[in-house]
């Protein structure tokens, strides 16, 4: 595999994993919010903030998944050109 294609494919895989990690972050934030909702001491501003973080996580995860897809396509094109 040519060097460029290899590096780009590696980036794509890393970002794929990162997209999944962000999905995991969203799930953790969701679970945290659910846990704290039953706690009277949780500050009132917390839940709106956590919801905003969850939404941002989901969007960021989708952004990175899109990047990974485009990088995979790019890497494949470079590979086709080699052959």
């Amino acid at each position: 595999m040519p060097a460029h294609q290899r590096v780009i494919a590696a980036h794509a895989e890393a970002l794929d994993a990162d997209a999944e990690a962000l999905t995991g972050c969203a799930a953790r934030l969701h679970a945290l919010a659910a846990r704290l909702r039953s706690d009277a001491a949780a500050p009132p501003w917390l839940f709106d903030t956590l919801n905003a973080h969850i939404t941002a996580c989901v969007v960021a995860s989708a952004d990175l998944a899109e990047v990974a897809t485009r990088l995979h396509v790019y890497a494949d094109l470079l590979g086709d050109e080699e052959h």
């Binding site: 980036h11 890393a14 970002l15 990162d18 990690a21 962000l22 995991g24 972050c25 996580c57 960021a60 990175l64 990047v67």
Partner: peptide, 9 residues
């Protein structure tokens, strides 16, 4: 974790 992701991107 988010910062790590940012560093990779």
């Amino acid at each position: 974790v988010m910062r790590e992701v940012s560093v990779h991107a």
